[in-house]
Computed example of a mutant assay.
Amino acid sequence: MSQQPGQQGPSSFLNPNYVNPEVKGHYLKPVIITLMVLSGTIAGLRIITRSSILRSLGADDWVIIPALITAYALSIFNMMSEEYGWGRHIWDIQPKEWVFIRQYQFATQLLFTYSVALAKASILIFYLRFCTTKRFRIAIWITFGLLIAWVVSMSGLIIFQCHPVSNFWKEIPLTQTKREGCLPNEADMVLLHGIFSVVLDVIVLFLPMPTVLHLGLPTKQKVGLIAMFSLGLIVCLAGCLRIASIRSTILTFDVSWYGYDLYIYTSTEAHVGIICASVPSLKPLLAVFFPRLVTTTYGAGSRNRRSGALPDEFGSRGVRNSKGYPLNSMIESRIGSEETVFRRDEEGGDWPLPSSSSSPDGVVKTTEIHQVVVLRDVPFR
């Protein structure tokens, strides 16, 4: 029996409201669309930076593309679920509408798994590009193994949790709590899925920290690298919020009402993962258009410093400064009354030290000036 538009009183299983049902909110679509725009823009800028400025698209860049595609599909299905009643009380959803919602749930569980896994894989491949020790490389590959095992196991559980598979979305009375031919612990599986995803996020977050701390870098640069990698904390936070939302959803029968925010957290975790994986690649873009943002000043007593083994985002021969030298390969030493421009050896090595007794190799010019030591046109300092 349906409730008329003018009828008062709360709806229920005995008195469902299919005409003008109460809804949890109207903010799901605006939030998800905003996330889609942000992740798409940043991932697009990453591809442009790597292909046009650095001219060296890597495997991590290619992997982020399917991660973005699956995240977009995930978000679209989440928004389509709202059209069929997600965000209403479950008794205000017609059984035929619930079939579509369950189909979208099946698809989004798989898409979420693939999207966040691909984003994590992109970060791990990025780590391999500046891996400096055998121990770090082994740790990366072990994490890869855990990631692959998680994807394969969760994909199998999601796809084959019902036999036949279509039983997952088969039309049944909404008061029926168990589906024929399906595993009885679907809610627990979804919760474990989210927990293991966050555990992998934490592993990926802390994986490079020991290596960064042991790199021969200035303290400011170490702090910058650690701060950059710490962006992964945002992904971990989104994952924790998603777990909390899953727990509150599975503890109630009215899952479509109390699970409204869960779809937002699911899209958030997927898109924020892509954003955090792409932000480090934008440093050369900032160096080209906003060089002052990537300038670091050292005191006049600065000593010889090695840049460490850093990937192209922190210095690439493909990026040239105003003098035609590759970014991160030139240092202007302005000490006392002389300005001396040095170039680092193209094959690597230390920066030459200014010397008052003899002119170091690679001196380009010397002029009278009174300044401090300045590093310019460096994509990451």
Rank of each mutant, 00 (worst) to 15 (best):
V212N: 03
L213R: 08
H214A: 13
L215T: 03
L215V: 07
L215Q: 06
G216H: 11
G216V: 02
L217D: 05
L217A: 04
P218F: 08
P218N: 12
P218M: 12
T219M: 14
T219K: 15
T219Y: 09
T219F: 13
T219E: 07
K222W: 07
K222G: 09
V223K: 12
V223S: 05
V223T: 10
G224N: 08
G224I: 07
L225Y: 01
L225I: 13
L225T: 09
L225D: 01
A227Y: 01
A227V: 05
M228H: 00
F229K: 01
S230P: 09
G232E: 10
L233W: 00
L233N: 01
I234R: 07
C236W: 04
L237T: 11
G239T: 08
G239D: 11
C240K: 03
C240Q: 04
L241R: 08
L241S: 01
R242E: 05
R242N: 10
I243N: 06
S245D: 05
S245V: 03
I246A: 02
I246D: 04
S248F: 06
S248P: 00
T249K: 11
T249S: 11
T249I: 01
I250Q: 14
I250H: 04
T252V: 11
T252S: 11
T252A: 07
F253V: 02
V255S: 13
W257L: 13
W257Y: 15
W257G: 12
W257N: 12
Y258A: 06
G259E: 05
Y260D: 10
Y260R: 10
Y260T: 11
D261Q: 12
D261C: 01
D261T: 13
D261K: 12
L262P: 03
Y263P: 00
I264W: 01
I264A: 10
I264R: 02
I264T: 12
Y265C: 12
Y265H: 12
Y265D: 04
T266L: 06
T266M: 10
S267W: 06
S267D: 10
T268L: 15
T268N: 01
T268W: 02
A270D: 09
H271G: 04
V272G: 00
V272N: 00
V272C: 04
G273W: 06
I275L: 13
C276N: 01
S278I: 01
S278T: 04
S278G: 03
S278D: 04
S278L: 02
V279S: 04
P280Q: 06
P280F: 04
L282N: 09
L282R: 09
L282E: 08
K283M: 15
K283I: 14
K283V: 14
P284G: 07
P284I: 06
L285N: 11
L285Y: 10
L285W: 12
L286A: 15
L286T: 13
L286D: 04
A287E: 10
